[in-house]
């Protein structure tokens, strides 16, 4: 059994990283990043089978693709704290000549990143392609991906969702961050999507629901359940219900912090709610 206290401590530190990164450059996306902190920590620390170091081809290990690239702060923090690059490099987020671009890219050769993302709706296709190459290579490892719920408004997702079931791509676990928020407001106000679960099921996917997407035990249990359902002829979708801005009270349950950085006072407030655990970068 994993030591969940360690995972919780790491999550707290990741939250601090996120707040400090976006505060320093007065830009970036803290809301969705905070909402997915537990998921990223669980994914990289417990769920994925990863090789030492980084190799673009990722043969013999699980792969992860971030489709909603704007939550780069949480991705960078967890990659750094999982050993892909020095934690100090988080200081360079969004600065000129940095490998930590506003949205993730392979262009600057940042270890851990296998595709550029930011323009939404493209990640599931890429993840499916990588999953099919794993099958061709007789590599039994899995491909994971993460997508925003608002992002599902992009039509390419539905091309990919249809393709995955039609081609029995059953070595993929695509997680949807169901936080119910997007830039302009609640997803149901921007473009009501109805039941995401019913839609994935209608497209032939196996759906696993994690109703407490900010609870480490619930995430680990749900992802283990999802993993047990791979290899059965159907792609697997995890609907992860999260709270945008989780862990920083004034950022929670609102879209206001989707793409806005805290000021000095707000930063201090947010950090006070998340005392240092593993050491700031």
């Amino acid at each position: 059994m994993p030591n969940t206290q360690q995972l919780k401590d790491l999550t707290t530190q990741v939250r601090r990283d996120i707040l400090r990164m976006v505060h320093k450059v007065n830009s970036g996306h803290p809301g969705g990043s905070l909402g997915c902190a537990e998921f990223f920590v669980c994914l990289y620390q417990e769920i994925m089978d990863r090789n030492e170091g980084f190799d673009m081809n990722g043969i013999g290990e699980d792969l992860f693709f971030l489709s909603n690239g704007h939550i780069s702060p949480v991705y960078y923090s967890v990659l750094a704290r999982s050993g892909y690059f020095p934690v100090d490099e988080l200081n360079s987020f969004r600065l000129i000549n940095s490998r930590l671009q506003g949205h993730p890219t392979t262009h600057e050769n940042l270890p851990g990143i296998r595709i550029a993302s930011g323009s939404l709706g493209q990640g599931m296709s890429v993840a499916l392609g990588a999953a099919q190459t794993k099958k061709l290579n007789k590599d039994s490892h899995l491909v994971y991906s993460l997508h925003g719920d608002g992002e599902l408004q992009e039509g390419q997702n539905w091309e990919a969702i249809m393709y995955a079931a039609g081609n029995n791509v059953d070595n993929i676990i695509s997680t949807i961050d169901l936080n119910g928020q997007q830039i302009d407001g609640a997803t149901d106000d921007v473009l009501p999507m109805g039941s995401v679960k019913a839609k994935f099921e209608a497209f032939g996917w196996t759906v696993v629901e994690v109703n407490e997407g900010n609870n480490i035990e619930a995430i680990l249990k749900g992802m283990a359940d999802a993993k047990s359902k791979t290899g059965q002829g159907k792609p697997v979708c995890v609907l992860l219900k999260t709270v945008m801005g989780n862990g920083v009270d004034f950022m929670m349950h609102t879209h206001a912090w989707h793409g806005k950085a805290p000021n000095d006072e707000q930063l201090a407030n947010g950090l006070a709610q998340n005392p240092e655990t593993l050491g700031d970068y």
Partner: peptide
């Protein structure tokens, strides 16, 4: 891939990861 060119390009990009 069917009549789904956007997905085709994404799939192709992903398939390169692993050496195809």
């Amino acid at each position: 891939v069917g009549i789904a060119e956007a997905n085709m390009i994404g799939l192709a990009a992903g398939m390169t990861i692993g050496g195809k």
